[in-house]
Design a protein around this nucleic acid. Structure first.
Lengths: 316, 316
DNA sequence: GATCTTCATAACAATCCGTTATATTATAGC
DNA sequence: GCTATAATATAACGGATTGTTATGAAGATC
């Protein structure tokens, strides 16, 4: 005999609270509704669920056994509604975010941790990739968000993108680099030092090539390549090498006092760090909240950078 | 937001089976019913539960999370229906049975064990008592069955009682008792030996008093009293004492070859071992089955006794 | 691109649900 | 034992929901 789950839950509520009235109140129902449910249940089962003529209500063996299962359902139901509630306000769910390695490592990872102090039940699944991969992953619904630098003219084509940081590269080196002592830095001097290449496939690598050629290099001498951000930084710390990095990434490392930027301006790439989303896809509130959080995080970063540059001659 | 438990279960079925059609089949429903449920759920939640335009169906994060809770409910529901089913056929439940100590210990306890080889999920709660207590307990719905000797003229008064064994007492002693060697047993000889009294309050004790007086005793010399069946038997084993016991109880001990009955007839009490139930009270199938089992158990016991007496001169 | 399976929608009847109003029943206090 | 009180059962009703079958739309497969 199949029993309506709702009936079992009502039974459980009554057994748990010890009364029809209280049980109904627990479920937010009127007493007659629950009373009728119990009558119907007993009639259908052909077995009493409560010992008749006894108050406070006392369940029979069958009644209390069934009530246990009802209690399980009641608990599950409660949890489910809680889950929905937290999901609706973006407090639970999954955020799948992909991005370029340097930004992810230097900035987004920390932001994720920060985000989760207020959203502990949101799971973040991070992955690496460059624009083409990320766009494909977005369209295939493998990720919910992408964070990467995008050429201004790149067409969205079904993707929404918000710029969150203007493109700006700097030349990074360790804080003890001899070039930092020079009064006037000539671009040609940069070619005297070994260079470290950003990850293959990254826009930064193209930037580096263009930059070195503009400095008059006939060929590009790369001493080290293939490292992630941590690898590059650790290389830089141990040698007077140079590399190109996003300004924000170097800025994020300022606390370490191990690498910094040379006080020389290099051309802005026609690119801006952006958050990419699919326009059509329904995004969960958690994804939206995370995107907002990242955006505001970069907002404050931009202000930080600005204030920092106004107060000190940065990089010296 | 409160979610209908039935909806969660349907969701779980679909997620579990990987398709609306299969999910509906799992629940014994038509496919459109489940399909509509899912549509309504998504509409009410404002969040998709499945990734659109993808077959086989793939749940979203929210969908699979909710499905987990649905699965819990589904499992509980299944178990509940199983429980009901087994309860209806008397394969589960509780049997509260009270009875007089000697019968319970000597006969009923073993029957309980035997009963549970076919009804392992029936819990038996046994208690001791004599007629007055048992009747009160029955009326107060503290026990479902009582098994005790009842005077033939005792009125049921709302109680149904079935006789399961005629009243018949014997005088019990150890198998090495000297009286067993006598050719002709004179009642007066019995008075030469010490007597053990059945539990206070028991009908047996009254029987014993009446018996001894009828033998011509001026006063009753009780050497030992207050023991349960095990106590009395162990006393008898260690001394040439005598006592009154129901015939069936002594018979049940025959395998031990430690106590037996004197070959002397004593008056039948106007009493028969009976099963008592309340007439009005709804009894669970398990109780009915147990009562039937006990009845048939005593039926075979009666036959056993009969055959035994026909084949051997019992007690010698 | 044709076909086949699977899912979504529509329409309808029956049931069930929850409500308020009211009667009945059990317990407690005198 | 009787009354007062609190709790439960019953009745009646509007509305929502459930299930059904029939049919249309959309992916997947070849």
């Amino acid at each position: 005999m199949k029993i309506d789950e709702r009936h079992l839950i009502q039974l459980a509520a009554v057994v748990k609270t010890g009364g029809v009235t209280e049980g109904a109140a627990l479920l937010g129902l009127a007493q007659p509704a629950v009373s009728r449910t119990l009558s119907m249940l007993e009639q259908r089962l052909g077995e009493p669920l409560f010992i008749k003529g006894r108050r406070p209500l006392q369940p029979t063996a069958l009644g209390s056994s069934l009530a246990e299962y009802g209690l399980v359902m009641l608990a599950a139901s409660r949890k489910a509604t809680d889950l929905v509630e937290s999901f609706r306000v973006g407090k639970s769910g999954v955020v799948r975010v992909g991005g370029t390695p340097f930004f992810m490592d230097a900035l987004i990872a920390g932001l994720c941790a920060e985000f989760q102090t207020t959203h502990p039940d949101v799971r973040i699944e991070q992955s690496y990739g460059y624009f083409a991969d990320l766009r494909a992953a977005l369209k295939a619904d493998q990720i919910d968000l992408a964070i990467c630098p995008i050429d201004i003219l790149d067409e969205g084509s079904g993707l929404e993108f918000q710029q969150i940081l203007p493109g700006r590269n700097v030349i990074a080196c360790r804080v003890t680099h001899p070039l930092l002592l020079k009064r006037k830095l000539q671009p040609a001097q940069l070619l005297d030092y070994p260079w470290v290449a950003p990850p293959p496939g990254s826009p930064l690598l193209a930037d580096l090539r263009a930059l070195l050629l503009s400095f008059g290099a006939t060929e590009i001498k790369i001493r080290y390549s293939g490292g992630s951000l941590m690898g590059v930084i650790n290389y830089l710390k141990a040698a007077d090498a140079l590399t190109v990095m996003p300004h924000s990434v170097v800025f994020a490392q300022r606390k370490d006092k191990s690498i910094t930027a040379l006080p020389i301006n290099i051309p802005h790439p026609e690119r801006a760090l952006s958050i990419l989303k699919r326009i059509d896809a329904p995004r969960s509130p958690a994804v939206d909240q995370f995107a907002d959080f990242v955006r505001s995080g970069f907002e404050t970063l931009r202000h930080l950078i600005k204030r920092h540059e106004e107060s000190v001659v940065w990089g010296v």
